[in-house]
């Protein structure tokens, strides 16, 4: 069920979250010289996790497997690049709403044209839109073409002349992204628990039955698609802010595929599963890269093993563990 997380599991997730939030305290002692790099790495993983949650709304909840989701992520990044003055900081209070509005409109249009299809056709249509976005930025002079573009000065977050947060400061940005991660999770959790979320979840199970109850599945799917695209755009905005660079690769179908794997391995339709999937996959990649140049081989084996052994992903395993514990408590 998408609406609730068992209490025992919630405790585990909160412990993991607290450990992540306290990384700046214990990370320095444990990782010493690598601390700064890992702080950035974890920030990047949290951003991907935000995107994975947004894709989970489509794949795990509404039953819409999209291979074009990275287009919205990339668009979010490009909106920041295009709206940032070259040698001055953009005003976050202006550029963030502009970005989210532009991505929402793009998602609305793409969604309107895509959700009329289903199954393999939906995958193909979203893939096509994603690739259109990729080649648009790759082949045009806009924002550097295939070379991408730099954001030399990060957006400023000011209120009444005072700087609230310095996004250029790695630790501050880490906590900003952590806050966004928690905020997006909470928002999506509330959304899924609402009547709207229940209908979207029911559509993912059986669209015809939902129609038989008098709900228009197209309208619900379109709203879900737009919300998911907008959240992915927010993640793209954060990624562009972190790295100070955007490139067409942000929109590529490979990126959509990577995040889809995180959603599937983490556990579809659970929201927290894709977050775990993002951490497991990205940290495994980092670890394996350090060990061998042929890291893709063990990585592939790991993905196959998880899919075979945990058909409901890591989240499914955790939920099963909770049920067993609850059973033994009774």
């Amino acid at each position: 069920m998408t609406g609730t997380v068992p209490r025992r599991l919630a405790v585990v997730l909160v412990v993991l979250l607290v450990a992540l939030a306290l990384f700046p305290l214990w990370g320095k002692a444990v990782f010493a010289a690598k601390y700064a790099f890992l702080l950035q790495k974890l920030t990047g993983i949290m951003i991907v996790a935000i995107m994975a949650m947004s894709l989970d709304l489509l794949v795990g909840v509404a039953g819409l497997v999209s291979l074009g989701h990275a287009a919205f992520f990339g668009l979010g990044g490009y909106m920041l690049a295009l709206n940032s003055p070259q040698y001055e900081a953009a005003n976050l209070w202006l550029v963030l709403p502009q970005t989210l509005a532009a991505v929402a409109v793009a998602a609305l249009v793409v969604g309107f044209l895509s959700i009329r299809t289903s199954g393999i056709y939906f995958i193909m249509v979203t893939l096509a839109f994603g690739q259109m976005g990729f080649y648009f930025f790759n082949d045009s002079k806009l924002a550097g073409g295939s070379d991408g573009a730099y954001i030399y000065v990060k957006p400023k977050v000011e209120a009444f002349g005072a700087i609230l947060v310095d996004l250029d400061h790695k630790l501050s940005f880490f906590y900003v992204v952590l806050g966004v991660l928690v905020g997006v999770y909470a928002l999506l959790r509330v959304l899924l628990a609402s009547p709207f979320g229940r209908v979207v979840g029911a559509i993912g199970i059986n669209e015809n039955r939902v129609q038989g109850l008098g709900f228009n599945p197209m309208a619900y799917k379109l709203v879900a698609f737009t919300i998911a695209g907008t959240v992915a755009g927010l993640a793209g905005f954060l990624a562009a802010t972190q790295y100070g660079f955007v490139s067409p690769a942000m929109l590529s179908w490979h990126h959509s595929g990577d995040v889809l794997v995180m959603v599937i391995l983490g556990g579809m339709g659970t929201l927290f599963g894709p977050v775990l999937g993002a951490f497991i996959l990205e940290l495994a990649r980092y670890g394996l890269e350090a060990v061998t140049d042929h890291w893709l081989l063990p990585m592939g084996a790991m993905v196959i093993a998880i899919v075979l052994l945990l058909p409901k992903g890591v989240a499914g395993l955790l939920l099963q563990w909770c049920r067993k514990r609850e059973g033994s408590d009774d």
Partner: peptide
């Protein structure tokens, strides 16, 4: 036409 991801309460409230 039950939905396996919805509780009894959710089935009723949704409709």
């Amino acid at each position: 036409g039950m939905f396996h991801n919805l509780t009894v309460r959710e089935h009723l409230v949704m409709a």
